[in-house]
Design a protein around this nucleic acid. Structure first.
Lengths: 239, 239
DNA sequence: CCCTCTAGGATTGTCGACAATTTGCGTCCC
DNA sequence: GGGACGCAAATTGTCGACAATCCTAGAGGG
């Protein structure tokens, strides 16, 4: 009431996040970056000691990650970081393609194209910076930030919710197979073209580029696979 | 080892589901069918008594539903069943459209079209039965089963996971606005045509029909809205 | 009469201990 | 020596109690 509006714009309760949420985020990051490799068993007692909390909040965080699909729970056995099989790479990108296509459509038709395009260009700038500094990890992070921003821009709560796990899984893929063998200029360029099509409102081009972007990624991460097929591919290494 | 294969085909551990999972499923059903109307506050103590369990497993179930998006948690206040605003109807169907489009594509290209079509026809038969018995609740259930079957048939773990919440939310919409004002023959017919296009492998028709199916539903549940717009509509009642 | 402050009740958040279940290893019998 | 049985350690699942926080109602002052 007495406070003039515009001042103290971002005061928040001392602890706006629950303990479980903090733990979940830390674990998410650790899984995403590969600090907790796929297949790792997470002991509740051990983690509770490391985080200095009881097993209650920790279990809540774990359950959260389980329902997100990042952890797999075997009853009375333990919790394990999921390991991505080749079929999963296909599945992840097929799902991402569906989500991001919808997000792009809403961005295209939302009437805020220029604002969104500006937002996205900022993340591409981050990519360029990371590329010039030869920091592949930062490059991947910026790459994902682009797609996250696109989905956020769609304004759809549910697209955002569904994409969260997918993007983390994508990061896991990129971490596991760090040798992407793609020229960085090309990688930046694909995103730039995408923004341009969005800004111009060219639906056909934007959607086609997006599809190609996903297709490229799949073929790089899981050679011999194509999103155009309707099924998961045979395991390449075992033939 | 000594057991002849084919006998005792489905023995399972006495309790293959965790307590939290059982509770979560019960609550899901209650929310879906409207037994727990949107906005209801769920007291942990009260529910724990009703389920005859401690607050621990119950909290886990709740957290699960929160991360699925069916419950909303206000710190130190309580847990509430989400209430769907008009914009949410739009959002749900836009997301469903994206997911089911992808599922349909994979079904179309998966090479198992006839088997999938047969599966789907079974659910349409259920719809017809429910329609002939004038049971709108069973009709809605069968309707959702069709879409669930379609998504399951896609074989994508992630599409299935993401669709679970969406279908429950859809059921909430249908329960809240039971007066759908759509002729049942029409409702059955739309699904039949969808199956036919799938069986024939006609991608263009199948996708168009699916889109129209979603568009129809949105316009019925949230009049004046269209999926073709890229944004949530203004609230109809307040203008 | 209205606003403010305070005390009460109720609910969630957290913790430590106990019970149930699984796995691995050692022992015993064949 | 091979296999099955049984025990023990470790881990998860569950519980009840305590602490922190928030809403509400009522008294007091302006």
């Amino acid at each position: 009431m007495a406070l003039p509006p515009g001042m103290l714009p971002e005061i928040e309760p001392v602890s706006r996040e629950s303990t479980a949420a903090v733990i979940a985020r830390q674990l998410r990051d650790a899984i995403m970056t590969g600090a907790l490799p796929p297949g790792t068993q997470l002991g509740e007692t051990e983690l509770a000691a490391r985080f200095q909390v009881s097993r209650g909040p920790l279990r809540e965080a774990m359950q959260h990650l389980v329902s997100e699909g990042l952890l797999r729970s075997e009853r009375h056995r333990g919790l394990f970081v999921i390991d991505l099989e080749p079929g999963d790479v296909y599945d992840i990108y097929a799902a991402r393609s569906a989500i991001e296509r919808a997000a792009m459509l809403r961005a295209l038709r939302g009437g805020d194209r220029d604002r969104i395009a500006d937002l996205l260009e900022r993340t591409v700038a981050e990519m360029a910076t990371a590329a010039s500094e030869d920091d592949p990890s930062a490059l991947s992070t910026a790459d994902l930030k682009f797609h996250e921003a696109l989905i956020n821009a769609s304004g759809s709560k549910r697209l955002v919710r569904m994409a969260r796990t997918l993007l983390i899984e994508t990061r896991m893929c990129l971490t596991a197979l760090q040798s992407t063998y793609q020229r960085v200029e090309e990688r930046v360029d694909e995103h730039t073209k995408l923004i341009q099509a969005l800004r111009e409102g060219d639906e056909e081009t934007a959607l086609t580029l997006l599809e190609a972007h996903m297709e490229d990624a799949v073929q790089r991460l899981a050679p011999g696979t194509s999103l155009k097929d309707g099924h998961a591919p045979p395991v390449p290494g075992n033939v």
